[in-house]
Design a protein around this nucleic acid. Structure first.
Length: 552
RNA sequence: UGGGGCGUCGCCAAGUGGCAAGGCAGCGGGUUUUGAUCCCGCCAUUCGGAGGUUCGAAUCCUCCCGCCCCAGCCA
Protein backbone atom coordinates (compact mmCIF):
# COMPACT_ATOMS: atom_id res chain seq x y z
CA UNK A 1 0.00 0.00 0.00
CA UNK A 2 1.00 3.62 -0.15
CA UNK A 3 3.83 4.98 1.89
CA UNK A 4 1.70 7.86 3.07
CA UNK A 5 -0.22 6.84 6.12
CA UNK A 6 -1.76 9.95 7.55
CA UNK A 7 -1.59 10.34 11.25
CA UNK A 8 -4.80 9.75 13.17
CA UNK A 9 -5.71 9.33 16.81
CA UNK A 10 -5.78 5.53 16.65
CA UNK A 11 -2.31 5.26 15.18
CA UNK A 12 -0.98 7.77 17.65
CA UNK A 13 -2.55 5.92 20.54
CA UNK A 14 -1.24 2.55 19.42
CA UNK A 15 2.23 3.92 18.81
CA UNK A 16 2.25 5.19 22.37
CA UNK A 17 0.97 1.93 23.82
CA UNK A 18 3.60 0.00 21.93
CA UNK A 19 6.35 2.45 22.85
CA UNK A 20 5.48 2.34 26.52
CA UNK A 21 5.44 -1.42 26.39
CA UNK A 22 1.83 -1.59 27.53
CA UNK A 23 1.28 -4.09 24.78
CA UNK A 24 3.92 -6.10 23.00
CA UNK A 25 1.87 -6.95 19.94
CA UNK A 26 -1.14 -5.21 18.52
CA UNK A 27 -4.21 -7.43 18.28
CA UNK A 28 -7.44 -6.12 16.75
CA UNK A 29 -10.58 -7.77 15.52
CA UNK A 30 -13.38 -7.22 13.05
CA UNK A 31 -16.55 -8.37 14.85
CA UNK A 32 -19.58 -8.45 12.52
CA UNK A 33 -22.89 -9.91 13.56
CA UNK A 34 -23.83 -12.44 10.84
CA UNK A 35 -27.25 -10.94 10.29
CA UNK A 36 -26.87 -9.13 6.98
CA UNK A 37 -24.59 -8.15 4.15
CA UNK A 38 -21.51 -6.03 4.63
CA UNK A 39 -21.57 -2.51 3.19
CA UNK A 40 -19.18 0.37 2.59
CA UNK A 41 -19.36 1.34 6.25
CA UNK A 42 -18.16 -2.10 7.25
CA UNK A 43 -15.39 -1.78 4.68
CA UNK A 44 -14.12 1.19 6.65
CA UNK A 45 -14.14 -0.79 9.87
CA UNK A 46 -12.40 -3.67 8.14
CA UNK A 47 -9.80 -1.34 6.69
CA UNK A 48 -9.22 0.23 10.09
CA UNK A 49 -8.84 -3.01 12.02
CA UNK A 50 -6.91 -5.04 9.47
CA UNK A 51 -4.98 -1.98 8.36
CA UNK A 52 -3.78 -1.20 11.86
CA UNK A 53 -2.67 -4.79 12.43
CA UNK A 54 -0.82 -4.67 9.12
CA UNK A 55 0.85 -1.35 9.86
CA UNK A 56 2.07 -2.36 13.29
CA UNK A 57 2.94 -5.95 12.50
CA UNK A 58 0.17 -7.29 14.71
CA UNK A 59 -2.78 -9.51 13.95
CA UNK A 60 -6.45 -9.07 13.32
CA UNK A 61 -9.10 -11.66 14.06
CA UNK A 62 -12.39 -12.21 12.33
CA UNK A 63 -14.93 -12.90 15.03
CA UNK A 64 -18.63 -13.30 14.47
CA UNK A 65 -20.63 -11.65 17.20
CA UNK A 66 -23.26 -14.35 17.13
CA UNK A 67 -25.21 -13.86 20.32
CA UNK A 68 -28.64 -13.42 18.76
CA UNK A 69 -29.44 -16.67 16.88
CA UNK A 70 -32.90 -15.65 15.77
CA UNK A 71 -31.50 -12.98 13.48
CA UNK A 72 -28.39 -14.73 12.26
CA UNK A 73 -27.47 -17.43 9.77
CA UNK A 74 -24.62 -19.36 8.24
CA UNK A 75 -25.41 -17.75 4.90
CA UNK A 76 -24.24 -14.42 6.26
CA UNK A 77 -21.16 -15.95 7.84
CA UNK A 78 -20.18 -17.23 4.42
CA UNK A 79 -20.87 -14.02 2.54
CA UNK A 80 -19.04 -11.91 5.10
CA UNK A 81 -15.93 -14.05 4.82
CA UNK A 82 -16.06 -13.79 1.05
CA UNK A 83 -16.37 -10.01 1.25
CA UNK A 84 -13.47 -9.60 3.67
CA UNK A 85 -11.24 -11.73 1.46
CA UNK A 86 -12.31 -9.90 -1.64
CA UNK A 87 -11.37 -6.62 -0.01
CA UNK A 88 -7.90 -8.08 0.25
CA UNK A 89 -7.59 -8.98 3.90
CA UNK A 90 -6.84 -12.25 5.62
CA UNK A 91 -7.62 -12.80 9.27
CA UNK A 92 -5.21 -14.30 11.70
CA UNK A 93 -5.94 -17.92 12.61
CA UNK A 94 -9.30 -19.57 12.28
CA UNK A 95 -12.58 -17.78 11.97
CA UNK A 96 -13.82 -17.18 15.51
CA UNK A 97 -17.27 -16.86 16.98
CA UNK A 98 -18.48 -15.40 20.24
CA UNK A 99 -20.35 -18.69 20.49
CA UNK A 100 -17.02 -20.51 20.73
CA UNK A 101 -16.78 -19.01 24.22
CA UNK A 102 -20.32 -19.56 25.48
CA UNK A 103 -19.17 -22.07 28.07
CA UNK A 104 -16.56 -19.64 29.41
CA UNK A 105 -19.06 -16.80 29.50
CA UNK A 106 -21.42 -19.01 31.42
CA UNK A 107 -18.70 -19.78 33.95
CA UNK A 108 -17.99 -16.09 34.32
CA UNK A 109 -21.67 -15.38 34.86
CA UNK A 110 -21.64 -17.92 37.72
CA UNK A 111 -18.55 -16.19 39.07
CA UNK A 112 -20.39 -12.87 39.22
CA UNK A 113 -23.31 -14.58 40.93
CA UNK A 114 -20.96 -16.03 43.56
CA UNK A 115 -19.48 -12.59 44.15
CA UNK A 116 -22.91 -11.06 44.55
CA UNK A 117 -22.47 -8.98 41.41
CA UNK A 118 -25.21 -10.57 39.33
CA UNK A 119 -28.76 -11.72 39.98
CA UNK A 120 -31.65 -13.38 38.26
CA UNK A 121 -34.49 -10.95 37.68
CA UNK A 122 -38.09 -11.97 37.05
CA UNK A 123 -39.36 -8.60 35.89
CA UNK A 124 -41.20 -8.70 32.58
CA UNK A 125 -39.73 -6.62 29.76
CA UNK A 126 -42.42 -3.98 30.35
CA UNK A 127 -41.74 -3.85 34.07
CA UNK A 128 -38.02 -3.70 33.47
CA UNK A 129 -38.51 -0.68 31.27
CA UNK A 130 -40.42 1.10 34.01
CA UNK A 131 -37.83 0.24 36.61
CA UNK A 132 -35.05 1.48 34.37
CA UNK A 133 -36.08 5.12 34.74
CA UNK A 134 -35.51 7.67 31.99
CA UNK A 135 -32.69 9.83 30.70
CA UNK A 136 -33.39 12.36 33.43
CA UNK A 137 -34.79 10.19 36.22
CA UNK A 138 -32.94 7.43 38.05
CA UNK A 139 -34.23 3.87 37.93
CA UNK A 140 -35.50 1.77 40.81
CA UNK A 141 -34.01 -1.41 42.15
CA UNK A 142 -35.64 -4.60 41.01
CA UNK A 143 -37.47 -6.45 43.78
CA UNK A 144 -35.36 -9.49 42.85
CA UNK A 145 -32.09 -7.65 43.29
CA UNK A 146 -31.24 -9.09 46.70
CA UNK A 147 -31.67 -12.77 46.08
CA UNK A 148 -29.00 -14.91 47.68
CA UNK A 149 -26.12 -16.25 45.68
CA UNK A 150 -27.47 -19.75 46.18
CA UNK A 151 -30.88 -18.85 44.87
CA UNK A 152 -29.38 -16.98 41.94
CA UNK A 153 -27.12 -19.89 41.10
CA UNK A 154 -29.99 -22.31 41.23
CA UNK A 155 -32.23 -20.10 39.12
CA UNK A 156 -29.50 -19.42 36.57
CA UNK A 157 -28.67 -23.13 36.27
CA UNK A 158 -32.32 -23.85 35.68
CA UNK A 159 -32.40 -21.11 33.05
CA UNK A 160 -29.61 -22.93 31.31
CA UNK A 161 -31.44 -26.22 31.74
CA UNK A 162 -34.27 -24.77 29.74
CA UNK A 163 -36.84 -24.81 32.51
CA UNK A 164 -38.25 -21.37 31.77
CA UNK A 165 -39.98 -19.78 28.85
CA UNK A 166 -38.51 -17.07 26.65
CA UNK A 167 -38.50 -13.75 28.41
CA UNK A 168 -39.46 -15.19 31.75
CA UNK A 169 -36.23 -14.30 33.53
CA UNK A 170 -32.90 -12.67 32.81
CA UNK A 171 -29.53 -12.52 34.49
CA UNK A 172 -28.48 -8.96 35.32
CA UNK A 173 -25.35 -7.38 36.66
CA UNK A 174 -25.80 -5.60 39.97
CA UNK A 175 -24.31 -2.19 39.38
CA UNK A 176 -26.28 1.01 39.93
CA UNK A 177 -29.89 1.71 39.04
CA UNK A 178 -29.32 5.42 39.63
CA UNK A 179 -26.38 5.77 37.28
CA UNK A 180 -26.71 8.64 34.81
CA UNK A 181 -25.34 6.15 32.29
CA UNK A 182 -28.27 3.91 31.53
CA UNK A 183 -25.97 1.08 30.49
CA UNK A 184 -24.93 0.77 34.10
CA UNK A 185 -28.48 0.40 35.45
CA UNK A 186 -28.17 -3.33 36.12
CA UNK A 187 -27.66 -4.37 32.47
CA UNK A 188 -28.84 -7.73 31.22
CA UNK A 189 -26.20 -10.42 30.83
CA UNK A 190 -28.33 -13.33 29.67
CA UNK A 191 -31.78 -13.72 28.24
CA UNK A 192 -33.78 -16.88 27.57
CA UNK A 193 -34.23 -17.79 23.91
CA UNK A 194 -35.27 -21.27 22.95
CA UNK A 195 -33.79 -20.91 19.51
CA UNK A 196 -31.55 -23.09 17.41
CA UNK A 197 -28.19 -21.43 16.95
CA UNK A 198 -26.39 -21.67 13.63
CA UNK A 199 -23.18 -22.74 15.39
CA UNK A 200 -24.20 -24.35 18.66
CA UNK A 201 -27.47 -25.89 17.60
CA UNK A 202 -29.80 -26.56 20.51
CA UNK A 203 -27.14 -26.59 23.18
CA UNK A 204 -28.26 -23.34 24.72
CA UNK A 205 -31.64 -21.95 25.70
CA UNK A 206 -29.94 -18.83 27.05
CA UNK A 207 -27.75 -16.37 25.19
CA UNK A 208 -25.42 -13.66 26.45
CA UNK A 209 -26.03 -10.06 25.40
CA UNK A 210 -23.60 -8.02 23.36
CA UNK A 211 -22.37 -6.27 26.47
CA UNK A 212 -21.55 -9.46 28.29
CA UNK A 213 -20.01 -11.19 25.28
CA UNK A 214 -18.01 -8.61 23.44
CA UNK A 215 -15.37 -7.52 25.90
CA UNK A 216 -14.99 -11.01 27.29
CA UNK A 217 -14.53 -12.37 23.79
CA UNK A 218 -11.83 -9.74 23.30
CA UNK A 219 -10.21 -10.81 26.56
CA UNK A 220 -10.20 -14.49 25.63
CA UNK A 221 -8.59 -13.73 22.29
CA UNK A 222 -5.97 -11.38 23.67
CA UNK A 223 -7.33 -8.44 21.71
CA UNK A 224 -5.39 -5.36 22.79
CA UNK A 225 -7.41 -2.65 21.07
CA UNK A 226 -11.10 -3.23 20.63
CA UNK A 227 -12.01 -0.65 18.06
CA UNK A 228 -15.67 0.14 17.55
CA UNK A 229 -17.92 2.99 16.53
CA UNK A 230 -18.96 6.02 18.55
CA UNK A 231 -22.39 4.78 19.59
CA UNK A 232 -20.67 2.26 21.86
CA UNK A 233 -18.87 4.92 23.80
CA UNK A 234 -21.52 4.88 26.53
CA UNK A 235 -20.93 1.15 26.86
CA UNK A 236 -17.26 1.53 27.66
CA UNK A 237 -17.76 1.93 31.43
CA UNK A 238 -19.66 -1.36 31.36
CA UNK A 239 -17.03 -2.97 29.15
CA UNK A 240 -14.41 -1.94 31.69
CA UNK A 241 -16.57 -3.05 34.63
CA UNK A 242 -16.67 -6.63 33.36
CA UNK A 243 -12.96 -6.68 32.64
CA UNK A 244 -12.25 -5.35 36.10
CA UNK A 245 -14.51 -7.73 38.02
CA UNK A 246 -14.00 -10.94 36.07
CA UNK A 247 -10.92 -13.17 36.24
CA UNK A 248 -10.19 -12.57 32.56
CA UNK A 249 -6.78 -13.55 31.16
CA UNK A 250 -6.17 -10.19 29.57
CA UNK A 251 -7.44 -6.62 29.69
CA UNK A 252 -8.41 -5.27 26.28
CA UNK A 253 -9.21 -1.63 25.73
CA UNK A 254 -12.14 -0.24 23.79
CA UNK A 255 -11.57 2.78 21.54
CA UNK A 256 -14.26 4.37 19.43
CA UNK A 257 -14.11 6.12 16.07
CA UNK A 258 -16.73 7.80 13.88
CA UNK A 259 -18.43 5.50 11.43
CA UNK A 260 -18.23 6.28 7.74
CA UNK A 261 -21.18 7.99 6.08
CA UNK A 262 -21.11 8.81 2.38
CA UNK A 263 -23.40 11.18 0.54
CA UNK A 264 -26.15 9.84 -1.74
CA UNK A 265 -25.97 6.57 0.14
CA UNK A 266 -28.05 4.71 2.65
CA UNK A 267 -26.56 1.95 4.79
CA UNK A 268 -29.23 1.14 7.32
CA UNK A 269 -30.16 -2.52 7.06
CA UNK A 270 -33.84 -1.70 7.16
CA UNK A 271 -33.59 0.76 4.28
CA UNK A 272 -31.37 -1.45 2.18
CA UNK A 273 -33.84 -4.27 2.67
CA UNK A 274 -36.65 -1.97 1.63
CA UNK A 275 -34.87 -1.29 -1.66
CA UNK A 276 -34.59 -5.00 -2.29
CA UNK A 277 -38.10 -5.89 -1.14
CA UNK A 278 -39.78 -3.18 -3.15
CA UNK A 279 -37.88 -4.13 -6.26
CA UNK A 280 -36.10 -0.79 -6.56
CA UNK A 281 -32.93 -2.81 -7.08
CA UNK A 282 -32.44 -6.36 -8.28
CA UNK A 283 -30.97 -7.67 -5.04
CA UNK A 284 -28.39 -7.16 -2.33
CA UNK A 285 -25.65 -7.27 -4.94
CA UNK A 286 -27.29 -4.89 -7.39
CA UNK A 287 -24.51 -2.66 -8.78
CA UNK A 288 -26.21 0.39 -7.27
CA UNK A 289 -26.16 -1.01 -3.77
CA UNK A 290 -23.50 0.19 -1.30
CA UNK A 291 -22.99 -3.40 -0.17
CA UNK A 292 -19.56 -4.90 -0.74
CA UNK A 293 -21.19 -7.39 -3.08
CA UNK A 294 -22.87 -4.51 -4.92
CA UNK A 295 -19.71 -2.45 -5.22
CA UNK A 296 -17.89 -5.51 -6.46
CA UNK A 297 -20.47 -6.22 -9.08
CA UNK A 298 -20.39 -2.58 -10.06
CA UNK A 299 -16.71 -3.02 -10.83
CA UNK A 300 -15.25 -0.93 -8.03
CA UNK A 301 -11.77 -2.37 -7.42
CA UNK A 302 -11.07 -3.54 -3.87
CA UNK A 303 -7.87 -1.49 -3.96
CA UNK A 304 -9.89 1.64 -4.69
CA UNK A 305 -12.18 0.98 -1.75
CA UNK A 306 -9.21 0.45 0.54
CA UNK A 307 -7.52 3.57 -0.74
CA UNK A 308 -10.70 5.56 -0.22
CA UNK A 309 -10.93 4.36 3.38
CA UNK A 310 -7.39 5.56 3.98
CA UNK A 311 -8.01 8.87 2.21
CA UNK A 312 -11.01 9.85 4.27
CA UNK A 313 -9.08 9.35 7.45
CA UNK A 314 -10.24 8.13 10.82
CA UNK A 315 -11.46 10.54 13.44
CA UNK A 316 -14.08 10.97 16.11
CA UNK A 317 -16.21 13.58 14.38
CA UNK A 318 -19.46 12.69 12.68
CA UNK A 319 -19.08 13.38 9.04
CA UNK A 320 -20.63 12.91 5.66
CA UNK A 321 -18.00 12.10 3.08
CA UNK A 322 -18.70 13.24 -0.47
CA UNK A 323 -19.21 10.10 -2.53
CA UNK A 324 -17.21 11.89 -5.24
CA UNK A 325 -14.18 10.96 -3.17
CA UNK A 326 -14.95 7.28 -3.58
CA UNK A 327 -15.54 7.78 -7.28
CA UNK A 328 -12.26 9.60 -7.57
CA UNK A 329 -10.44 6.68 -5.96
CA UNK A 330 -12.13 4.33 -8.40
CA UNK A 331 -11.17 6.42 -11.44
CA UNK A 332 -7.65 6.79 -10.17
CA UNK A 333 -7.19 3.06 -9.87
CA UNK A 334 -8.95 2.19 -13.11
CA UNK A 335 -7.10 4.81 -15.13
CA UNK A 336 -3.90 2.97 -14.31
CA UNK A 337 -5.14 -0.59 -14.57
CA UNK A 338 -7.98 -0.81 -17.06
CA UNK A 339 -7.07 -1.67 -20.65
CA UNK A 340 -8.72 0.52 -23.26
CA UNK A 341 -11.26 -0.62 -25.81
CA UNK A 342 -13.91 0.92 -28.02
CA UNK A 343 -17.64 0.65 -27.68
CA UNK A 344 -20.25 2.47 -29.71
CA UNK A 345 -23.29 3.09 -27.57
CA UNK A 346 -25.64 4.43 -30.20
CA UNK A 347 -24.36 3.25 -33.58
CA UNK A 348 -24.75 5.08 -36.86
CA UNK A 349 -23.18 3.83 -40.06
CA UNK A 350 -20.26 5.49 -41.81
CA UNK A 351 -19.29 4.56 -45.38
CA UNK A 352 -15.73 5.37 -46.31
CA UNK A 353 -16.00 6.15 -49.97
CA UNK A 354 -12.34 5.94 -50.83
CA UNK A 355 -11.16 3.05 -48.67
CA UNK A 356 -10.63 0.22 -51.12
CA UNK A 357 -8.44 -2.09 -49.09
CA UNK A 358 -9.13 -2.85 -45.41
CA UNK A 359 -6.60 -1.40 -42.97
CA UNK A 360 -4.86 -3.56 -40.44
CA UNK A 361 -4.27 -1.47 -37.34
CA UNK A 362 -2.23 -2.06 -34.24
CA UNK A 363 -3.76 -0.12 -31.39
CA UNK A 364 -2.30 0.51 -27.95
CA UNK A 365 -4.21 -1.04 -25.09
CA UNK A 366 -3.13 1.74 -22.75
CA UNK A 367 -2.07 5.24 -23.79
CA UNK A 368 0.72 5.61 -21.26
CA UNK A 369 1.68 2.08 -20.26
CA UNK A 370 3.22 0.01 -23.02
CA UNK A 371 3.14 -3.11 -20.88
CA UNK A 372 -0.52 -3.43 -21.81
CA UNK A 373 0.59 -4.19 -25.36
CA UNK A 374 -1.32 -3.72 -28.58
CA UNK A 375 -4.33 -5.26 -30.22
CA UNK A 376 -4.97 -5.78 -33.90
CA UNK A 377 -8.00 -4.08 -35.37
CA UNK A 378 -9.34 -4.37 -38.86
CA UNK A 379 -10.96 -1.39 -40.48
CA UNK A 380 -12.84 -1.60 -43.73
CA UNK A 381 -15.13 0.83 -45.49
CA UNK A 382 -18.15 0.26 -43.25
CA UNK A 383 -17.88 1.67 -39.75
CA UNK A 384 -20.08 2.44 -36.83
CA UNK A 385 -19.66 5.61 -34.79
CA UNK A 386 -21.75 7.15 -32.05
CA UNK A 387 -24.75 9.20 -33.12
CA UNK A 388 -23.64 11.95 -30.74
CA UNK A 389 -20.32 12.23 -32.54
CA UNK A 390 -21.81 13.52 -35.76
CA UNK A 391 -23.62 16.71 -36.70
CA UNK A 392 -24.50 18.07 -40.06
CA UNK A 393 -23.41 21.45 -38.79
CA UNK A 394 -22.00 22.68 -35.55
CA UNK A 395 -20.26 25.56 -33.88
CA UNK A 396 -16.51 25.71 -33.35
CA UNK A 397 -16.72 24.06 -29.94
CA UNK A 398 -17.86 20.78 -31.41
CA UNK A 399 -14.72 18.74 -31.93
CA UNK A 400 -16.27 15.72 -33.60
CA UNK A 401 -17.46 14.83 -37.08
CA UNK A 402 -19.31 17.51 -39.04
CA UNK A 403 -20.27 17.62 -42.69
CA UNK A 404 -17.32 19.03 -44.61
CA UNK A 405 -15.06 18.79 -41.55
CA UNK A 406 -12.48 16.38 -40.32
CA UNK A 407 -12.07 14.15 -37.36
CA UNK A 408 -9.55 11.49 -36.42
CA UNK A 409 -10.69 7.95 -35.82
CA UNK A 410 -9.06 6.69 -32.66
CA UNK A 411 -5.98 4.65 -33.56
CA UNK A 412 -6.63 5.12 -37.23
CA UNK A 413 -6.92 7.62 -40.03
CA UNK A 414 -8.42 11.09 -40.42
CA UNK A 415 -11.72 11.25 -42.25
CA UNK A 416 -13.85 14.04 -43.64
CA UNK A 417 -17.63 13.83 -43.84
CA UNK A 418 -19.08 14.49 -47.28
CA UNK A 419 -22.78 13.80 -47.05
CA UNK A 420 -25.38 11.77 -45.23
CA UNK A 421 -28.66 9.95 -45.76
CA UNK A 422 -31.62 10.50 -43.51
CA UNK A 423 -34.85 8.65 -42.94
CA UNK A 424 -38.33 10.15 -43.14
CA UNK A 425 -37.98 11.42 -39.57
CA UNK A 426 -34.81 13.27 -40.31
CA UNK A 427 -32.57 10.82 -38.48
CA UNK A 428 -29.21 10.25 -40.03
CA UNK A 429 -28.94 6.71 -41.35
CA UNK A 430 -25.62 6.71 -43.14
CA UNK A 431 -22.72 9.14 -43.24
CA UNK A 432 -20.48 9.19 -46.28
CA UNK A 433 -16.91 10.19 -45.62
CA UNK A 434 -13.51 9.92 -47.21
CA UNK A 435 -10.17 9.09 -45.69
CA UNK A 436 -7.92 12.11 -45.66
CA UNK A 437 -4.90 10.11 -44.56
CA UNK A 438 -4.01 6.63 -45.63
CA UNK A 439 -2.54 5.16 -42.49
CA UNK A 440 -2.64 5.61 -38.76
CA UNK A 441 -0.44 8.18 -37.08
CA UNK A 442 -0.29 10.63 -39.94
CA UNK A 443 -1.55 14.18 -40.24
CA UNK A 444 -3.25 15.39 -43.41
CA UNK A 445 -0.76 16.52 -46.03
CA UNK A 446 -2.62 19.75 -46.65
CA UNK A 447 -1.92 20.76 -43.07
CA UNK A 448 -5.58 20.98 -42.08
CA UNK A 449 -5.62 19.00 -38.85
CA UNK A 450 -8.74 17.50 -37.34
CA UNK A 451 -9.95 19.13 -34.14
CA UNK A 452 -10.85 15.98 -32.37
CA UNK A 453 -10.81 12.22 -32.10
CA UNK A 454 -13.77 9.87 -32.00
CA UNK A 455 -14.07 6.19 -31.34
CA UNK A 456 -15.50 3.65 -33.75
CA UNK A 457 -15.96 -0.04 -34.46
CA UNK A 458 -15.85 -1.95 -37.69
CA UNK A 459 -19.39 -2.67 -38.86
CA UNK A 460 -18.61 -6.14 -40.10
CA UNK A 461 -16.58 -7.44 -37.19
CA UNK A 462 -18.04 -5.63 -34.17
CA UNK A 463 -20.31 -7.64 -31.93
CA UNK A 464 -23.51 -6.61 -30.15
CA UNK A 465 -23.51 -6.20 -26.41
CA UNK A 466 -25.70 -4.96 -23.59
CA UNK A 467 -24.55 -2.00 -21.57
CA UNK A 468 -26.12 -1.09 -18.24
CA UNK A 469 -25.47 2.50 -17.35
CA UNK A 470 -25.80 3.13 -13.65
CA UNK A 471 -26.20 6.40 -11.87
CA UNK A 472 -26.74 7.35 -8.24
CA UNK A 473 -29.64 5.56 -6.63
CA UNK A 474 -30.79 8.71 -4.86
CA UNK A 475 -31.24 12.28 -5.94
CA UNK A 476 -30.53 13.80 -2.55
CA UNK A 477 -27.23 13.83 -0.61
CA UNK A 478 -28.76 12.45 2.58
CA UNK A 479 -31.46 10.00 1.52
CA UNK A 480 -31.46 8.49 4.99
CA UNK A 481 -32.90 11.70 6.36
CA UNK A 482 -35.94 11.80 4.12
CA UNK A 483 -39.34 10.76 5.38
CA UNK A 484 -39.85 8.22 2.67
CA UNK A 485 -36.96 6.66 0.84
CA UNK A 486 -39.05 6.11 -2.25
CA UNK A 487 -39.54 9.85 -2.62
CA UNK A 488 -35.86 10.44 -3.23
CA UNK A 489 -35.07 7.58 -5.58
CA UNK A 490 -33.35 8.70 -8.77
CA UNK A 491 -35.68 7.45 -11.52
CA UNK A 492 -32.75 7.30 -13.92
CA UNK A 493 -30.39 5.22 -11.84
CA UNK A 494 -30.31 2.54 -14.52
CA UNK A 495 -30.45 2.82 -18.29
CA UNK A 496 -30.09 -0.33 -20.32
CA UNK A 497 -28.66 -0.02 -23.81
CA UNK A 498 -29.15 -3.22 -25.74
CA UNK A 499 -27.90 -2.33 -29.18
CA UNK A 500 -24.38 -1.25 -28.48
CA UNK A 501 -21.52 -2.55 -30.59
CA UNK A 502 -18.12 -3.45 -29.23
CA UNK A 503 -14.80 -4.66 -30.52
CA UNK A 504 -14.89 -8.39 -31.23
CA UNK A 505 -12.21 -9.23 -28.66
CA UNK A 506 -14.52 -8.16 -25.86
CA UNK A 507 -16.47 -11.33 -26.44
CA UNK A 508 -13.75 -13.12 -24.53
CA UNK A 509 -13.62 -10.74 -21.59
CA UNK A 510 -13.57 -12.51 -18.25
CA UNK A 511 -16.40 -11.71 -15.88
CA UNK A 512 -15.32 -8.88 -13.56
CA UNK A 513 -12.70 -7.63 -16.04
CA UNK A 514 -12.82 -3.84 -16.30
CA UNK A 515 -12.13 -1.87 -19.47
CA UNK A 516 -12.12 1.76 -20.28
CA UNK A 517 -14.38 2.26 -23.27
CA UNK A 518 -12.58 5.25 -24.65
CA UNK A 519 -14.30 8.60 -24.29
CA UNK A 520 -17.14 6.93 -22.35
CA UNK A 521 -16.02 5.52 -19.05
CA UNK A 522 -15.04 2.36 -17.25
CA UNK A 523 -17.12 -0.75 -17.76
CA UNK A 524 -17.00 -4.14 -16.11
CA UNK A 525 -18.05 -7.44 -17.63
CA UNK A 526 -20.90 -8.44 -15.34
CA UNK A 527 -19.84 -10.99 -12.78
CA UNK A 528 -22.90 -13.16 -13.41
CA UNK A 529 -24.59 -12.15 -16.66
CA UNK A 530 -21.67 -11.68 -19.03
CA UNK A 531 -21.19 -14.58 -21.44
CA UNK A 532 -19.45 -14.57 -24.79
CA UNK A 533 -22.71 -15.26 -26.60
CA UNK A 534 -24.17 -12.15 -25.02
CA UNK A 535 -21.63 -9.74 -23.54
CA UNK A 536 -22.98 -7.60 -20.70
CA UNK A 537 -21.08 -4.61 -19.35
CA UNK A 538 -21.90 -2.47 -16.33
CA UNK A 539 -20.86 1.16 -16.16
CA UNK A 540 -18.43 1.41 -13.26
CA UNK A 541 -18.00 5.15 -13.47
CA UNK A 542 -17.88 7.63 -16.32
CA UNK A 543 -14.78 9.52 -17.33
CA UNK A 544 -14.41 12.86 -15.62
CA UNK A 545 -16.30 15.35 -17.73
CA UNK A 546 -15.37 19.00 -17.48
CA UNK A 547 -16.93 19.94 -20.73
CA UNK A 548 -20.51 18.79 -21.23
CA UNK A 549 -22.24 21.14 -18.81
CA UNK A 550 -20.37 24.16 -20.04
CA UNK A 551 -21.61 23.77 -23.58
CA UNK A 552 -24.76 23.38 -25.53
C1' U B 1 -33.92 19.96 31.21
C1' G B 2 -29.38 13.33 33.03
C1' G B 3 -24.97 11.21 30.84
C1' G B 4 -21.41 10.72 26.83
C1' G B 5 -19.17 12.82 22.42
C1' C B 6 -17.98 16.25 18.37
C1' G B 7 -17.15 21.38 16.17
C1' U B 8 -10.05 23.41 11.53
C1' C B 9 -11.64 25.78 3.61
C1' G B 10 -17.96 23.58 -0.12
C1' C B 11 -16.73 17.88 1.67
C1' C B 12 -13.08 14.86 4.43
C1' A B 13 -8.69 15.76 7.47
C1' A B 14 -3.42 16.70 9.70
C1' G B 15 -2.01 19.70 13.63
C1' U B 16 -1.16 18.21 20.96
C1' G B 17 1.85 26.29 22.95
C1' G B 18 6.09 28.73 18.15
C1' C B 19 3.08 31.36 13.87
C1' A B 20 -2.71 26.60 9.44
C1' A B 21 -0.22 19.76 5.76
C1' G B 22 -2.74 16.84 2.29
C1' G B 23 -6.93 14.73 -0.50
C1' C B 24 -11.82 15.50 -2.91
C1' A B 25 -14.66 19.33 -5.26
C1' G B 26 -14.04 24.07 -7.77
C1' C B 27 -11.41 27.74 -10.81
C1' G B 28 -7.41 29.32 -14.35
C1' G B 29 -3.37 27.70 -17.82
C1' G B 30 -0.15 23.95 -20.52
C1' U B 31 0.54 18.99 -22.95
C1' U B 32 -2.46 15.39 -25.46
C1' U B 33 -4.71 10.60 -31.49
C1' U B 34 -9.67 9.66 -25.13
C1' G B 35 -13.38 17.09 -24.33
C1' A B 36 -9.82 11.44 -20.21
C1' U B 37 -5.03 11.07 -18.08
C1' C B 38 -0.77 14.06 -16.92
C1' C B 39 1.56 18.87 -15.57
C1' C B 40 1.53 23.94 -13.50
C1' G B 41 -1.01 27.69 -10.73
C1' C B 42 -5.17 29.62 -7.52
C1' C B 43 -8.38 28.17 -3.44
C1' A B 44 -8.57 29.28 5.59
C1' U B 45 -4.30 36.42 7.99
C1' U B 46 -7.58 31.96 10.32
C1' C B 47 -9.35 27.16 13.37
C1' G B 48 -18.09 27.32 16.22
C1' G B 49 -18.50 32.29 19.32
C1' A B 50 -16.93 35.60 23.35
C1' G B 51 -13.60 36.47 27.11
C1' G B 52 -8.94 35.10 29.70
C1' U B 53 -3.64 33.02 30.57
C1' U B 54 1.05 33.65 27.72
C1' C B 55 6.41 37.02 24.56
C1' G B 56 3.40 33.76 21.59
C1' A B 57 -2.98 29.94 21.43
C1' A B 58 -6.45 25.94 16.53
C1' U B 59 -3.71 23.89 20.64
C1' C B 60 -4.31 25.82 27.99
C1' C B 61 -8.67 28.06 31.19
C1' U B 62 -13.89 30.09 31.57
C1' C B 63 -18.58 30.88 29.72
C1' C B 64 -21.81 30.46 25.58
C1' C B 65 -23.73 28.35 20.81
C1' G B 66 -24.57 24.26 17.43
C1' C B 67 -24.71 19.09 16.02
C1' C B 68 -24.57 13.64 17.17
C1' C B 69 -25.42 9.24 20.51
C1' C B 70 -27.99 6.68 24.86
C1' A B 71 -34.21 4.90 28.05
C1' G B 72 -33.86 -3.37 23.02
C1' C B 73 -34.45 -9.29 27.00
C1' C B 74 -30.51 -5.72 19.08
C1' A B 75 -25.46 -5.16 17.92
Amino acid sequence: MSAELRSNFLRTQIENDLAKGQVSELVTRFPPEPNGFLHIGHAKSIAVNFGLAEQFGGRCHLRFDDTNPEKESQEFIDSIQEDVRWLGFEWSGEVRHASDYFEQFYEWALYLIEKGMAYVCDLSPEEAREYRGTLTEPGKNSPYRDRSAEENRSLFCRMRAGEYADGERVLRAKIDMASPNINLRDPILYRIRHATHHQTGDQWPIYPTYDFAHGQGDAVEGVTHSICTLEFEDHRPLYDWFIKHLPVPHAPRQIEFARLNTSYTVTSKRKLKQLVDEGIVSGWDDPRMPTIAGLRRRGYPAEAIRHFCEEVGTSRSDSLVDVAMLESAVRDRLNKFAPRAMCVMSPVRVELTNLLVPLQLSVQNHPSDSSFGHRELTMNSALLIDRDDFREQANKHFKRLVLGKRVRLRGSVVIEAESCDKDENGNVTTIYARCVTQEAGLDPEDGIKPKGVIHWVCASTAIPAVVRRYDRLFCTPEPGRSENLLDVINPHSLTILDDVMVEPALRDANPEAVFQFEREGYFVADRFDHVSEKPVFNLVIGLRDTWSDKNV
